[in-house]
Amino acid sequence: MQAPLPLGSRPPVLRMSAVDKVFGADIVALKGMQLDVNQGDFISLLGPSGCGKSTALRLIAGLMTPTTGRIEWSGGTGQGDLGVVFQEPTLMPWTTVAKNVALPFRLRGKSGAEVADAIRNALDLVGLSGFENAYPRELSGGMKMRVSIARALVTNPRLILMDEPFAALDEITRFKLNNDLLDLKTKTGCTVIFVTHSVFESVFLSDRIVVMAARPGRVIRTLEVDEPYPRAEAFRTTPEYAAHCRAASDALHDAMGIAA
């Protein structure tokens, strides 16, 4: 629970330098990816399909290795704790909400009062206190996603990766979860890399937007959204928000133009 530090003075978490990923012999999914992630950052990877944003996420998660280039974690200790939220809630249907959230601890053989506290705390943060013993099927789509988020942050990870987590939800639920995610970021000071193809979502949530283009997947522009957190719902109607959306939208058009 640390207070957000000003930009520029945050300790580094992760650096991707000149990362290429090639599938098969000649499909370049990602070319020359450069990314510095610092503690407390909320970074959006914004781009059309096939721009390599999910590939970048999978590389950071350690689910695949770069063809060339390096991904270095500060301290050199490897990724350590990492939270992941997928596009689907990806819960285990055969067990309860509490046990789903407990999964990261369970896989490390941890249990006890500390773990129980962490689970209670995580469920409280996503607004699901009292649903510990519910089964996933009893929850709505938005609530399932909240459980997924609780699982990602229950270990208080150094970095949370989110791969279009709200893309499958209706707009009302999506806006609500956007607001709640920002609340969560303010409360926990967590560091997030958020993959999306929504300009509005990326501007509302992030302090940095990395715009990517396809064929080959690469970064074409990085935009700073230097608006202070916490951001309220009212931020969506400010001229600053509109300006940032315009800039991000232009960058995205450039990305599509190059790709076409």
Partner: peptide, 19 residues
């Protein structure tokens, strides 16, 4: 995706089988 999650959390073969 659950498989990936188990990989990320460093699950052993045995844990993957049981859980």
């Amino acid at each position: 995706n659950l498989r990936d999650l188990f990989t990320i959390y460093g699950a052993t073969r045995w844990q993957r089988l049981i859980f």
